[in-house]
């Protein structure tokens, strides 16, 4: 692959004595939607959270291998973790807005980067809320606590909040699993729009969703990568037996 933005080499992860990720090798292409596909409990979410070192929040985790981002290994201990995390926005399964107003949720990331003053913040907040297709719904209630929004709106707020940090990559962990069908569609449409400027890595176990939006597929099963490649090839011409079983719905 030419210039992958992330390449993972020989990644192993143990949680306590459990071998969660087994010798993972993946390349993630630039400005595409890469979908990590697989049945529940196969290590997809762990993989995603290893990418921005959120696994650091847990005890008894042992990692070996390399994750290269812009030719730098992000798993070395002394690296600036906050810097890496800034490059990757995270959208989790259930939206978790920060305990503050709608405006401040988006402004939070701008502020920790040193931007101050409402006059400077406002246009950027508006821009990112528009990017997440939320602006029209909240422009009159920016001072409301974020917890008052509907779940679907909260998820788009989280998207806007992530975009405000100016990431290169968006990590999305089953971002539509808690949403109603309409909100899900809105998020999927936004992804198609956003991939012009961002690399998107999305975890899902919903085959149809993967078919709809993936450019590139990584198929995982029980902590191992079974197959990866361009989406068209993966769906039309799978090479591995396990992939064919999965696509037929043998284990879901």
């Amino acid at each position: 692959m030419e210039n992958p933005i992330i390449s993972i080499r020989n990644l192993n992860l143990y949680f306590e004595k459990q071998h969660v990720l087994k010798n993972i090798n993946i390349e993630i292409p630039h400005n595409k939607v890469t979908v990590i596909l697989g049945p529940s409990g196969c290590g997809k979410t762990t993989l995603l959270k290893t990418l921005n070192r959120l696994v650091d929040l847990h005890d008894h985790v042992k990692i070996s291998g390399k994750i290269m981002l812009d030719d730098k290994d992000i798993l070395v201990p002394n690296i600036d973790v906050t810097g890496i995390r800034k490059k990757m926005g995270l959208l989790s399964q259930k939206p978790s807005p920060l305990p503050m107003t709608i405006f401040n949720n988006v402004a939070y990331g701008l502020r920790i980067n040193g931007l101050r003053g409402k006059r400077k913040l406002m246009p950027l907040v508006e821009k990112h809320l528009r990017e997440a297709n939320l602006w029209d719904e909240v422009k009159d209630r920016l001072r409301d606590p974020a917890s008052r929004l509907s779940i679907g709106q909260q998820q788009r707020l989280c998207l806007a909040r992530g975009l405000a940090v100016n990431p290169e990559i968006i990590l999305a962990d089953e971002p539509t699993s808690a949403l109603d069908p309409i909100s899900s569609t809105v998020i999927e449409q936004q992804f198609a729009e956003l991939k012009k400027h961002y690399t998107i890595v999305m975890v899902t176990h919903v085959l149809r969703q993967a078919r709809r939006i993936a450019d590139h597929i990584v198929f995982m099963y029980l902590g191992e990568v079974i197959e990866q490649g361009p989406a068209r090839e993966f769906f039309n011409n799978p090479k591995e037996q396990k992939t064919r079983d999965y696509l037929k719905g043998a284990f879901n």
């Binding site: 929040l57 906050t82 259930k94 978790s96 920060l98 990331g109 989280c158 909040r161 992530g162 990590l171």
Partner: peptide
């Protein structure tokens, strides 16, 4: 405090101090 709140605060590039004193303290 739900883990997901900590996770999203950290993914925005916050340092531990910011997560602790701005997000968790407020929550």
């Amino acid at each position: 405090v739900p883990l997901s709140l900590l996770e999203s605060a950290f993914s925005l590039g916050s340092t531990r101090r910011e997560v602790a004193f701005k997000v968790v303290t407020r929550q």
